[in-house]
Amino acid sequence: MLSINDLHVSVAGKPILKGLTLEVVPGEVAAIMGPNGSGKSTLAHVLSGKAGYEVTSGSILFKGQDLLALEAHERAREGVFLAFQYPVEIPGVSNAYFLRAAVNAVRVHRGLEELDAVAFLKEMREQMKRVKMDPKLAKREVNAGFSGGEKKRNEILQMAMLDPSLAVLDETDSGLDIDALKAVSDGVNALRGPNRSMLVITHYQRLLSYIVPDKVHVLLDGRIVTSGGKELALELEERGYDWLRGDAAA
């Protein structure tokens, strides 16, 4: 599904990712854990095609194709989805309009018919129920005035509607209370399947009790320094990251 090989990325001339190699197979939920400044968000942004990140060497293959050759909107249409750490507020644009425009852009690219307004709204209402989102938020402006939990539920709603094959969740748990975290996790878990992979980027182990990963990778100073099963997250929770720093320097 996703194959990252020796990836080096700089931001404003400063190297952030320094030889990151990672393999995610179809259906796998992989957690990326790491301290602040280790390059977690950079990885999420580079995968989604955000401007301002310079790939100096290395490659990313997504379903066998060169992901870096695609524009941000093309990646989304091909099936990459980024759940934002800080979802953007877009005043003047309704949530329902925005999401229908996105869904139809993706559908057309995949050779499906556009959803008309009625079919779209029916689908949207069903998916909103699954993430326990207030149906009134459909008509509201995108994320404008949403609480932190509502914004994150809105991200998961978009993910459900866009049906990606690779979902990248960038610190989806940070700042959420336990109810919102459960709702978001339930939404994510419902979307797990053999044809969908997920990259769950997080600072805290707590999320991984709700979204149980198949694999845990530790990102430190721009590289994956160790990988393991879900028990590695617990170990990191107890011991922190310092014991791994020797490996990073080596």
């Binding site: 989604s48 095609g49 955000k50 401007a51 524009e71 941000a72 909107h73 990646r75 989304a76 249409r77 989805f81 980024l82 934002f84 979802p87 953007v88 877009i90 005043p91 003047g92 644009v93 925005f98 999401l99 425009a101 996105a102 852009a105 993706v106 690219h109 995108v142 978009q158 866009l162």
Partner: peptide, 22 residues
């Protein structure tokens, strides 16, 4: 805002149009 729209598959032209119209 532009990147948010693009990251959902909306074309650059439509993304600009949406924001200018808003």
């Amino acid at each position: 805002s532009l990147f948010y729209l693009l990251s959902r598959g909306i074309s650059p032209e439509d993304a600009r149009g949406i924001l200018i119209l808003a």
